[in-house]
Nucleic acid binder design. Sequence first.
DNA 1: TTCTCGGCCGTTAACGCTAACATGCCACAG
DNA 2: CTGTGGCATGTTAGCGTTAACGGCCGAGAA
Lengths: 345, 345
Amino acid sequence: MAKEPASAPQRRPLTLRDVSDASGVSEMTVSRVLRNRGDVSGATRERVLAAARELGYVPNRIAGALASQRVNLVAVIIPSLSNMVFPEVLTGVSEVLEDTGLQPVVGVTNYSPEREEKVLYEMLSWRPSGIIIAGLERSPAARAMLENAGIPIVEIMDVDGTPVDNAVGISHRRAGRHIAEAIIAAGYRRIGFLGTMMPHDHRARKRLEGFEEALAAAGLHVEDREFYSGGSALLKGREMTEAILARSPDLDFLYYSNDMIGAGGLLWCLHHGIDVPAKVGLAGFNGVELVQGLPCHLATMDACRLEIGRKAAEIVAGKRLDGVTSGLVIELEPKLEPGDTIRRV
Amino acid sequence: MAKEPASAPQRRPLTLRDVSDASGVSEMTVSRVLRNRGDVSGATRERVLAAARELGYVPNRIAGALASQRVNLVAVIIPSLSNMVFPEVLTGVSEVLEDTGLQPVVGVTNYSPEREEKVLYEMLSWRPSGIIIAGLERSPAARAMLENAGIPIVEIMDVDGTPVDNAVGISHRRAGRHIAEAIIAAGYRRIGFLGTMMPHDHRARKRLEGFEEALAAAGLHVEDREFYSGGSALLKGREMTEAILARSPDLDFLYYSNDMIGAGGLLWCLHHGIDVPAKVGLAGFNGVELVQGLPCHLATMDACRLEIGRKAAEIVAGKRLDGVTSGLVIELEPKLEPGDTIRRV
DNA sequence: TTCTCGGCCGTTAACGCTAACATGCCACAG
DNA sequence: CTGTGGCATGTTAGCGTTAACGGCCGAGAA
C-alpha cells in the first residue's frame, strides 16, 4: 500500500523507471520486489519499497497484464443491482476471491439481452481470467463469445437449461413445483399468481411454469393472475394484492414471484384484517433478509444466493479440490421456509 | 458487437493480425475500422468488419490502453452494495456515462478505511480516467493517492469537509438540523435516536451531530438512544424500537439514522397500536423507495442519490457546460418529505 | 585449486495495440 | 503536362511491464 509521497503532484506519470532510478537498481528488480517474485536480497527489497513509497508509485497493471498475458480480473455479469439477490451473490463471490489475488468486476445488463451482449464484449476486451454470468438464456452472439473466450465460464442462478461450460444454481422449475405441492398439501385450492412482467426474467418464468405443472398434476390451475413492471416492488405488491382480491375474492392463496411484492401483499392483508394464513395463504420467493423484519413471516424459498456466489467463484479460481474448472453443473437445493403465511397441516 | 464465429474455439487468442490476414489489409487499417477513427473506404471497412465478425475477434483493450495511454474506465468506490443508496447512485452515474464511451467500474470498501486504501490502489493501477468515491474522510495514504492520481476526482454524498478535488453531495449536518427543526416545530419534545454503530459511517454521524445541535439550540436534547450493527435492518428497527420504548416510554419522537430501521420501527408501532404520529412521531433518512410501500408513509429526507451520481459523472466525463473538472463543490438540497409520521401543525 | 551451484541482479525481447508520420494514388487547377 | 492537395493505406516506434535467459560472485565440494 502506498503511503503519502513527499513529492508534489507530478506531470509525467510515474513508471518503474522512476523507482529504479531512485533506488539504484534495475527496473526488473523493482518489478520483482513489487510483485514479491524471484530472488531479491532483503536490503535491496527495503530500498526499493522505500523509494516506491516515497514517490507514491502505483504499478501499471495495463502494462503488466500485457507483458505477462495474465489479468487478475473475474467478470461478474448480472441483470440488476436493485434486486438484492445479486449483491448477495456478489458477496459470496468476493468472499471466495478475496485471498486468490483475483478481483471481481461487475457488469449490469438490466435484463436486456442487447446490453448483456455489449457488457460481455466490453468485459472480454479486458481479457478477464474467468466469467460468472447470471442465467442460461442469451443471444447466439453472446453464447458464441462465451464459447470462444477460452476461459472458465460459470453460468449462475439457474440449472434448467444447457450451460456453455459450468453452471451453479437451483432449478427454478423444481422450486415452483415444490412450493405448489406445499400449498396444495396445506389444503389451499383457489390459487392466484402475482408476478413481474419482465419477459427476460427467465427464472421467474420457469418458477411459474413449474408451479403450474404441479397444480395441473393435482387437477388445479392458477385462477387469476396479476402482473406489474417497474416501480417500488413493495408498493406494487400492495396494489396488485388489492386488485386481484377485488377481482377474485374467492382466492385462498397468493403466490408472488418474489419476496418484495410478497411482503407488500402481506402488509396489505395485515392492514386490512385479512386472516393470514387461515383465509388467505401467501408465499414469495428468494428468502431475502427483509422478510424477517415483517410482523409476520412470509413463506418463501431460499435461493441459495451466497452459496451460488461462493461455488461459482471457487470454480473460476480453480479452488475446487478436484481441480475441475469445466463442464460442472452444481445444483443447489432451495429450502422452503414456511414462515407464518401457510396453514400448518 | 461480435456475431457467432464460424470457426471452432481457437487455442491461440486472436489478435489484430489475424483479422488483418483474413481481410488482406494492414493491422493499422483494421484498428482504424474497429475504432471508427481515421479515413477508411466503405469497401474495406465492410471487408474488415466481416472478417472480424467471422473470426469472433474481440479487441484487446489492454494493449489498446497501453498504446494510446487512454483508459475508458471510471472508478466508482462505495462502501456497500446492500445499502440501496449506493446502487441508486450507480444508476445515476451509469446513465450519464452511457453515451460518453466511459465505463464505470465499481469497488466496494465495506466502510473500512483499510479496504478503501486497497481498493483505491487496485483501481489506480488500471489508470482509470476518473474517480468517483464516497465520502470525504479517508486515510492519509488514500488521500495522497487521490491527490497524485492526476485525474478528475469527485468525492460524493457529503460536502461537510475538505474535498481533495471536486465534491457533489448534501450537507448531512444541515440535514440533521433541518429535520430536528421540523420535529420541534411539530411540537415534539422528548426525542429518542436510533442508529447504526458503524464508526466509519461518517455521514450518519454528521446527521446526528446536526440533529443534536438543533435540539440544543431549542433547549432540548436526545433523551435516549439505541444502536445496532449488522443483521436485517428492518428487523433491527423493530427490536430497537421495542427496546427504547420499553426503557423510555415517555418518548414522543423517534429519529432513525436510516429509512430501513425507521420502517421496521414504524411497522412495530402500527402492529402494537401505537398512535402514529399523535402519540409518537417517527422519521428516517434517505428517501428509499421502500417506504412508499408501507401502510403509512414514514417521514424521511431525500438524499438526492440519483442526482449525485449524475452530477459526479458529468464532472469526470467533462460534460459540464463550463468545462470545469476541478475544484468544484456542488451542494444539493435534500427535501424533507413529512409523510404521515410527523404531526401536521 | 578448480568446479559447481545457487542467490542475486541485469539485459533483451516481446505483449498487442495505436500515434505519428510516410507513401501512393487520383482528381483537378494552372 | 506538371504540381498540389486530400484521401486511403502502410510503416515505424514506442506504451510500461514481465518472461526468459545470462552473468557474476562467493561458498562449499571434489
